[in-house]
């Protein structure tokens, strides 16, 4: 029996190790490439470990190519998108989950939100471009914030709806009995309890917005509005693919969402497992 169990564990470890390798090797390769010199990348036989590791590609991407401006734009756009999508999501979800409402209205609102998710971005990018130009928002981060908010709203609504529905109404009702009004109960009871869910939804919305490329390419023209992914694709030029700079940009692009997940991992896990065990 013990031998059988040991064999199964060993097999499981081998499978996990292979899966880990498959997932981690591209990330390792990205980091290794980002540390290599151009001469090393030119060589016919690729090296697994950088021979003379250097941070020069990071310096080149952020400062020589001035992509730090695009990074700043990305952080602003994604941060504002996340907060706006969560705020609107709350406005939609609060009445659905906390107030008396007909089932038909509730279902229609949720279905409408879901229908937005099925809208292919490519189908609306041209009319959206016309609207943005008409509003004088072309090449402004605000245009991207509005577009990203719209496309992430279904996600925000459906996730928040799930989290809010899990918080017992009795807690708020107890606050009402103690004299709290609806706003006070929302601030002091509902919002703190929903924090793990908000963080989980926020990080996922941020990650979606962070990697968006199509709208950022179409709706911006200069570094005033461009985001980081638009800059990264510029490293494939007509006569050269600047591999080490591109890999450095990839590492930078990974770092920010990764740091967010690591810093808030407790809340993310708590949020994603929120309501897994339901007591009836």
């Amino acid at each position: 029996m013990r031998r059988h169990l040991t064999g199964r564990y060993l097999l499981a470890w081998i499978v996990l190790a292979v899966v880990l390798l498959v997932y981690l090797f591209p990330i390792y390769w990205l980091i290794a490439t980002a540390l290599k010199s151009r001469a090393e990348i030119f060589a016919s036989d690729p090296t697994l470990i950088p021979q003379a590791p250097s941070l020069a590609p990071f310096q080149s991407v952020l400062f020589d190519r001035n992509m730090i401006v695009l990074l700043r734009n990305s952080i602003l756009v994604c941060g504002a998108t996340t907060l706006l999508a969560l705020a609107i999501g709350f406005i939609v979800c609060y009445p659905i989950t906390r107030l008396q409402m007909s089932r038909r209205v509730r279902t229609n609102v949720l279905n409408w939100a879901l229908s937005l998710r099925f809208l292919p971005p490519i189908a609306v990018v041209v009319p959206y471009f016309g609207i943005v130009r008409g509003l004088g928002l072309y090449d402004q981060p605000l245009a991207l914030i509005l577009a990203y908010t719209l496309f992430n709203l279904p996600f925000s609504i459906w996730m928040l709806k799930g989290f809010l529905a899990e918080i017992p109404r009795e807690l708020e009702e107890a606050a009402f009995v103690d004299g709290a009004n609806r706003w006070t109960a929302f601030r002091t009871i509902l919002l703190p309890l929903a924090t793990p869910g908000i963080l989980a939804a926020g990080i996922i919305i941020f990650a979606f917005a962070w990697s968006e490329f199509l709208f950022a390419l179409i709706l911006t023209a200069t570094p005033r509005g461009q985001t980081f992914p638009v800059g990264v694709q510029g490293l494939v030029t007509q006569f050269e693919i600047i591999w080490n700079d591109m890999a450095a940009a990839g590492v930078i692009a990974i770092l920010i969402p990764l740091a967010m997940v690591i810093l808030a991992r407790r809340y993310v896990i708590q949020g994603l497992t929120f309501g897994v065990i339901r007591e009836k």
């Binding site: 400062f63 401006v69 734009n73 602003l76 907060l83 402004q140 605000l142 570094p223 005033r224 509005g225």
Partner: peptide
């Protein structure tokens, strides 16, 4: 949340006007 929202949206709008001090190199 309110403060961060305001800062990000105002920051994004300012960046869009090109008035930001950190213009391209």
């Amino acid at each position: 949340l309110a403060v961060i929202t305001a800062v990000l949206i105002v920051g994004a709008c300012q960046s869009g006007t090109g008035a930001s001090p950190s213009a391209p190199a």
